[in-house]
Design a binder for these strands. Structure first.
Lengths: 157, 157
DNA sequence: TTCCGTGCAAATGATTTGCAGGACT
DNA sequence: AGTCCTGCAAATCATTTGCACGGAA
């Protein structure tokens, strides 16, 4: 019952939509990605799997996956959006290395709490938030190595 | 010595650039704006002042003003960037009403401190950060009024 | 003079959309 | 049958850029 493909199908049905071959292939491929990825990168991965799905369909399906809450969408000021599998109840924010583009995740309960307090003080009803820290990561600073082309790296300690 | 136009001129000279009529008009106009504004909105304001400056120049000058640290640039997921006069030492983050587009500012010293701690734990050297809280503001929730077209509102309590 | 800067229009580039033929239910 | 979908190419849209002419130092 927590199979993502089923979750997606349930979501689609609910919206009067169908789980097509393309949509299913895309979800299954997406589930294998353990990093942050762009629409373009997903498109390339699908071609490598000999799935000739159009870019339009990739974009359309990514939107659906975000709506279905299977994916989270992020704008890290890279000129294109990045996606990652939603860790439903484990919300996290990001540290983005502007040099090598590595992306790290962090979660700080106290920050979240203070943030809610700030919103409350402004009579503001939070829908979601983004907290991004840009700078340079330790590896880049010591090795000067840039992130290889292709998938944006996501490293966890 | 803290006259923004002079600051800009100093910055330009330093870069081997000139303070042209257009650039000066743009800075002076920008200085009068007390809200967040887009390139397009600035362009329109300039036309109203009978300054026929091209959009290309507006964009080019905005970039320079950001480099000169006279303006801060924000991406609030609105499809276009917003700018605001840099409050040099008074950094702040934002609450963005997704319904009426009002923008509120907040500063929480404790959050900033915790954030530095998070970065330190990751051996991450911070360059800058963005902390945006999206949701609905009190006014929108009670009146249902949408933000009027034109300049994005910035309200402070 | 000598670059630097400007306006204009064309180029970008990620994402979206209109259409016409296909595919689920 | 009746929708929903897909692929393709064209359209968007904010922003950028190439060029030839105009302007500060």
């Amino acid at each position: 019952m927590s199979d993502p493909v089923e979750t997606f199908q349930r979501f689609l049905r609910q919206q009067g939509l169908k789980l097509t071959t393309q949509r299913e292939r895309i979800v299954r491929r997406v589930l294998k990605i353990k990093k942050h990825f762009s629409a373009e990168e997903l498109f390339d991965l699908l071609r490598k799997d000999r799935s000739r799905i159009s870019k339009a369909t990739v974009y359309r399906t990514l939107s659906l996956l975000v709506e279905a809450r299977l994916l989270d969408e992020h704008d890290f000021e890279l000129g294109h959006k990045l996606y990652e599998q939603s860790q439903r109840d484990e919300h996290h924010d990001h540290l983005i290395c502007v040099a090598c583009r590595a992306i790290f995740e962090f979660h700080n309960h106290e920050i979240e709490r203070l943030q809610e307090q700030v919103a409350a003080e402004h009579d503001f009803a939070i829908t979601y938030h983004t907290h991004q820290i840009f700078g340079t990561c330790e590896e880049y600073r010591t090795t000067g190595k840039l992130c290889p082309r292709g998938l944006a790296r996501t490293r966890r300690d």
